[in-house]
Each structure stands twice: as C-alpha cells, then as structure tokens.
Computed example of a mutant assay.
Amino acid sequence: MTPAALRRTLSTLFIGGGTPTVLDDLLLHQILTACADVFGFADDAEITLESNPESLVERDLDELRRYGVNRLSIGVQSFNTEELALLGRVHDAHQAERAVQVARRSGIDTISLDMMYGLPGQTTASWRDSLSRAIECSPEHLSIYQLSIDDKTPFFRLHRRGELHLPDEDQILAMDDITMELCTLAGFEQYEVSNFRQPGCGCRHNLVYWRNEEYLGCGAAAVSYLNGERCGRIADPRSYCELIEAGTSPVFSRERLDRQASFRETVIMGLRLNEGISDDRLDQRFGCRLQDIYGAELDTLSADGLLYRDGVRWRLTTRGRKLANVVMRELV
C-alpha cells in the first residue's frame, strides 16, 4: 500500500466478497472505525454491506446504520424455494422477504437485491414470479445475473454428465425480455448490463470498476488497482491473517498493463454501462480513440446492430446488451 493511497479519503466502501453480516456488530464496528481512522470518509460516502437473508433476519440493523452503513446488498438469488434448494442456499423465500422488511425498518437508505436467472429447471413463468416478488419488496437497486457454470463446481460436473437441465437459449432471451418489461414498469433504469436502479440509486462503488478507475482492496483474495498496477492478495483467510500478523505483505501477484491492454480493458468495462464509453475521455487518458485501435471491428459490430455511436460516445444497442459477451469477445 503506497503512502498516496493512505492519504485518499474514501468516497465508497464495499464490505463483501462473502457474507460479512455473519460477524457480530462489534467486529463490523471495528472494521468501519479502522477505515475512518486510517482513511476518513467523504461526507456523502456510500458504505455498502453485503449480506444473505438468513444473516439479517435476527440482527439489529439499527446499530449498523448508526455505524455508517447506508446501503445493503442482499443475496436473495430467487424467491422460489425449490430453486434456492438447488443452489444450495440455506434461506427460503419467506426468509428473503422478511430480511428485506427488517432492512427497510432499520432506515438504511438503499437496499439492493441480487437475483439470478437461467437456473436449473427454471421457466419463464417462475422467473416472472420470482422477479415480481423481488420488485414488490420495493428495493432501490437490483443486480440481475444469468447463472454461469464455473469449473470445479458441482454444477459443472453435473452439466458435463448431462444431468443439469438448464433453460435453452430461447428461454434465456425470453427471461431477458421479462426482466426489461418488469423493471421498466416498476420505474427501474438499466444502467449496466446486469444492474438496474431507481433514480439516483446506482451503486457508486461498482461504477468505479466499470469505469476502470482506481480502487484499494483489503482482505483475503482482495485486488487493488492503484497507480496503474493491479495487485492480488492471497485468498486463504488464515494464511492472509498470519502474513499480516508477521508484518509480511499478503500480495502474491502484481500486474502492470501496457497502454493498449489498459485501453481495451477500459473499453470492455465501459461498454457494459448504458452511458457507454466516451472517445474524448479515452483520448484524454490514453491518447487514442476507439477507431484508432479497433478500426473495421467497430464497423462490423455496428452493421450487425450491436454497437452504435452517439456523438462522441459508443454504446451497446438493446440487442447488443443481450449479446454483450459476444461483443466483448470481439473487442478483447
């Protein structure tokens, strides 16, 4: 950690990458106090705590609000109990609804729900019902992700053996349409490929990632991006603590991207946002524009109806947002 990093006041803090609400209030308070002592918080700092429904139901969220937490990200995933069981989640739909009610009564400013579609056995009807129940909870923010099958997981092994019955491509596209329909009717704005907000309620912390700006990560498996260098910390929590207590750096990887690689990364992340990517900002930061790097690739994506130019900004079309992974593969 550089001295310059230590002098930066925090405008956002996201405590997550797990379920920090399993910690008791005292430990969470100590984490927030340490951040305030070392860095300080901006007057309008966004402080987010990641949580699961079962870890919220019985706790005193009023205390967390007094500590400065003003945003909760709740990993609901589904309001269908059978789907939750398949995902290995320990909460049910009733607990999820109750957790949101508890969070709302605490007076925390912003509640975000994580939802997932494309689940085994899920239908368009069950997705419509699950998302409708999420919206009925009146969250200010929704993060809605399609299930991805990672290597070395039980789902991957089942999928490889042909025992995992996932929705087909047509069903996934229909679920995308349902998402846009219900979110739009409820007043949500899609501001990133997988994220929807009520007016003024976007996640400022995640916008830093999507705009490829600098951030500091602390804790096991955390990553920082400072002064053009990305640093990864050891993932095992016990080993991480032992290194810290021994006064040894827990950083195990360092990467400094060259100008073109950093440019491409900034474009790929920025295009996930509905605001798109500004040629002027790219020119100020890297000394070049999209056409300089991609040339004919932009013409092809535009001709295919996936990408368009709006003044000095490049944006994904509505169709392009549905096929964002295809676009990103072309631009990587």
Score class of each variant (00 low, 15 high):
M1E: 04
P3A: 04
P3T: 07
P3F: 07
A4Y: 14
A5G: 02
A5K: 04
R7G: 15
R7I: 10
L13A: 14
P20Y: 04
P20A: 07
L26F: 10
L27C: 01
L28M: 11
L28Q: 00
H29W: 07
L32K: 08
T33D: 08
A36G: 12
A36E: 13
D37L: 15
G40L: 00
F41V: 13
A42R: 12
D44R: 09
E46S: 04
T48I: 04
L56P: 06
V57H: 06
D60E: 06
D62T: 12
E63D: 06
S73R: 05
I74T: 03
G75I: 02
V76G: 11
S78L: 01
T81D: 15
E83Y: 03
A85H: 13
L86S: 08
L86R: 15
L87T: 03
D92I: 03
A93Y: 10
Q95S: 14
A96G: 14
R98M: 10
V100Q: 05
V102Q: 08
V102G: 14
A103R: 05
D114R: 01
D114G: 07
M115I: 14
M116T: 10
Y117V: 07
G118M: 14
G118D: 07
L119K: 02
L131I: 09
S132A: 08
R133T: 14
S138E: 14
I144F: 08
I144R: 02
I144Y: 12
Y145S: 08
Q146H: 09
Q146P: 07
D150G: 05
D151F: 06
D151T: 10
R157C: 01
H159T: 00
R160P: 01
R161P: 01
D168G: 08
D170W: 02
A174H: 11
M175Q: 15
D177M: 10
T179H: 02
M180R: 12
T184K: 00
L185M: 13
Q190A: 12
N195I: 08
R197N: 09
R197P: 00
Q198E: 10
Q198R: 15
C201R: 14
L207P: 01
Y209P: 04
A220L: 11
A222H: 05
S224R: 11
S224V: 10
N227T: 12
G228N: 04
G228H: 02
E229F: 03
R233E: 02
I234R: 00
D236E: 09
D236M: 03
P237A: 01
S239T: 13
S239Q: 11
S239I: 08
S239D: 06
E245P: 00
V251E: 11
F252M: 10
R256M: 03
L257Y: 00
T266V: 11
M269F: 12
G270M: 08
D279R: 06
D280Y: 15
D280P: 09
R281I: 13
D283C: 03
Q284C: 10
F286C: 05
D292Y: 07
I293T: 09
Y294D: 08
E297D: 14
L301T: 02
A303V: 07
G305C: 14
G305F: 13
L307E: 01
G311W: 10
R315F: 11
R315T: 15
R315W: 13
T317Y: 05
T318F: 06
M328R: 00
R329F: 03
